[in-house]
Simulated scan of single mutants.
Amino acid sequence: MRGESRRAAIEPFYVMEVLKAAADRALVKGDVLSLVAGQPSTPAPAPVLRAVHEAIDADVLGYTEALGIPPLREVIAAYHRAESGADVTAEDVVITTGSSGAFSLIFLAAFDVGDTVVVARPGYPGYRNTLAALGCRVVELDCGPATRYQPTVAMLEALPKPPAGLIIASPANPTGTMIDPHELAAIARWCDDHGTLLISDEIYHGITYGGATSSAWETSRESVVIGSVSKYFSMTGWRLGWMLVPAGLRPALQRLAANLTVCPPTVSQYAAIAAFTPESIAELDGHVRRYAVNRDLLLRGLPELGFRDLAPADGAFYIYADIAHRTNNSAKWCADLLDATGVAIVPGIDFDTARGNQTVRMSFAGATADIAEAIERLRSF
């Protein structure tokens, strides 16, 4: 029997292993408080649920255009114009099967085997692992507290030569930190000047706690912006994302999308149009207010328990904590915590290939009562 390919020899996503361990315990003891999953704990907005029923009743729901239905592309373009002031048209928008599908498509469209792509460490492992599977050379920038866990122009200037691509995320997973708008603009200009494709992951826009977000397209229309209905819009399982892409990359994306996925999920496309209505936005902003309460509980409670080195949680719904004073094996520490208390959190090994054995990530997207109870169980541990 033929074995697996070399490109499949990438690291697993350890978050999924923790989710399974938590689910196994829940079946036996029923006491799990999960601070694991990077997803909202709420359903899609009410207008979206109504829209999906209407679409199921009224439409055949066959294939759509490979790059998405025009009404959704127009709604997303209008959303970006309102949010950032960037000049975005429907033609600039490419609808994808989740933001994961967007990354796969743009990596295939823009990078060749052997190209160097730079990512931040700590950072979302899907960037690194997908690039590796496609034969790209991944270079990690060590981004610590001194730069708020984000890359800078100075780091790019220190590279031996400009890379083919740079991926940034603001707000970021796992840290929740954001790039200052002036620094983001400077990064975008540097990439334009050096022939580096900037890919700006902006899927957590809308979930922030006082700071200002900015979009790469405010500075550079040669960059790529990634969006999704999964986070702020509370539609994770609907598997729908999008990209704002330069005109020169659209023909390649058209060809790749048509061959690899035919089209994004049709029912999700029609339903997602309703996610951008004022009624939906009001509901979603209510979720963000709950996230803010949960965030404050953790930022107050964790230092009392000895978690003093926390990344600035500017946005998203994560707390990223250094636990080097407690362990040098975060995976075992998290397993022991789950076994002793029923509280499930994620070891940092997914996000940081150098120091992830000394860090953990906690999601605060759940119910406020669960966050408060998790703190008390952590206190006993």
Rank of each mutant, 00 (worst) to 15 (best):
L72A: 01
V139P: 00
F364W: 03
A26Y: 05
Y320R: 06
E304I: 01
G176D: 05
E4S: 08
L244R: 00
S223P: 06
F103H: 12
R290I: 11
D285V: 09
E65I: 01
R73A: 08
R148T: 04
T147H: 01
L378S: 12
G101N: 04
L166R: 11
D352L: 08
S34C: 11
H205T: 03
N357H: 15
W333D: 02
M16R: 15
D201P: 09
V245Q: 02
P145D: 11
P145R: 14
V32M: 10
C191G: 03
S230G: 11
P70R: 13
R308V: 15
D92F: 08
G114M: 06
A21Q: 10
G195L: 07
E91R: 07
N329K: 07
K161H: 12
E376Q: 13
S280L: 03
S223V: 06
P174E: 04
A37C: 12
A66R: 13
V52G: 08
D352R: 04
V36C: 13
A23W: 15
R2L: 12
F103L: 11
T175F: 08
A365P: 01
V93Y: 07
C191Q: 09
P303M: 07
E140T: 07
P174V: 09
F307D: 02
T261H: 10
G30P: 11
N173K: 08
D92G: 13
T64C: 13
R221H: 14
P303L: 01
R295P: 13
S84F: 12
R250M: 01
D24P: 00
V262D: 07
A216G: 15
P303S: 10
G315L: 03
G348L: 09
G301N: 01
M178E: 01
D350L: 04
R326K: 11
P174K: 02
K332R: 15
S5M: 12
R137C: 00
E218Y: 09
G98W: 00
H80C: 13
L240S: 08
C334P: 00
A78C: 13
A66N: 02
S170G: 02
L61C: 10
V94G: 02
R221W: 11
T261N: 05
G144Q: 09
V119G: 11
R295L: 03
G126Q: 14
